[in-house]
Amino acid sequence: MTSSDKAPIAVKAEAVAPRTKPSSYPEPFFSRMARREKRALGDLFGLRNFGVNLTRLEPGGESSLLHRHSRQDEFIYILEGEPTLVTDRGEVPLRPGMCAGFPAQGIAHQLVNRTGRTVTYLEIGDRTPGDEGSYPADDLRAALGPDGKWVYSHKDGRPY
């Protein structure tokens, strides 16, 4: 059943088609996301103020590059598997039922799957305009464009 604007009222999250492109990162970073699959649940319902993704990491997969946001907050909730939360303050092993939050301008973070099992988690983040991403371990900067898409450059400002 759908509402008048054609957005569904409720769905089984696993039935939502995964994104066709695994990442918007430029190479050499794009290929690092090959073991990540995202299902954009929030977009399906027309949510504009925050995004919700059902994300899977296959063994060896990464959620993202180690990063932090200038304006956006993020939250994760582990559904299955045992990822490692990597931060610029150390590492924390996670298990199903655990969660973590990352305020804007806080610690740099990423999830990695160092196990032989798939990891599944929910990620939730706001969509504050003017956000920028910084990547302490990589030569990358990101700025959220007016169209809601990320624009990437080297740390010295050269575009990718």
Score class of each variant (00 low, 15 high):
M98A: 06
P96T: 08
L122T: 02
T118N: 11
V86K: 12
A137Y: 11
V92H: 12
G106L: 01
A104D: 04
G130Q: 00
T120A: 15
H109G: 04
H109R: 09
E123K: 00
E82V: 01
G116N: 14
G81A: 02
R117G: 11
N113D: 13
E91K: 05
G116R: 15
E123L: 03
G125V: 02
R114C: 09
R95V: 10
L111K: 06
V112E: 14
G97F: 06
L111N: 00
D88I: 00
D126V: 02
Q110C: 14
R127L: 12
L122V: 08
A104P: 07
A137C: 11
T84Q: 08
Q105C: 10
G90D: 12
E123I: 05
P96M: 13
P103K: 08
P129G: 03
C99N: 12
Y135P: 08
R127W: 00
T84F: 03
G101Y: 08
G97V: 12
I124C: 15
H109W: 01
P93I: 08
G90Q: 09
Q110P: 00
E132W: 01
L122Y: 12
T87Q: 06
T118V: 15
V112A: 11
I107D: 15
Y121Q: 04
G81E: 12
F102E: 07
L85I: 07
D126Y: 04
G101S: 11
T84S: 09
N113H: 03
L111V: 07
Q105H: 11
L85A: 05
P136F: 13
D88R: 05
E80G: 04
G97R: 13
T118F: 02
G125K: 09
Q110R: 14
Y77N: 01
D138P: 09
E123M: 07
E91V: 11
Y121D: 08
L122H: 02
L111F: 09
R127F: 04
V119Q: 11
D88L: 07
D131G: 04
R114N: 10
D88S: 10
I107R: 14
I78W: 02
G106T: 07
Q105S: 13
R89T: 08
T87I: 04
Q110W: 14
E91W: 08
P96Y: 09
E132M: 13
N113W: 01
V92G: 06
V112R: 15
Y135H: 14
R117N: 13
S134V: 10
G90W: 09
Y121S: 09
L122N: 03
A100C: 10
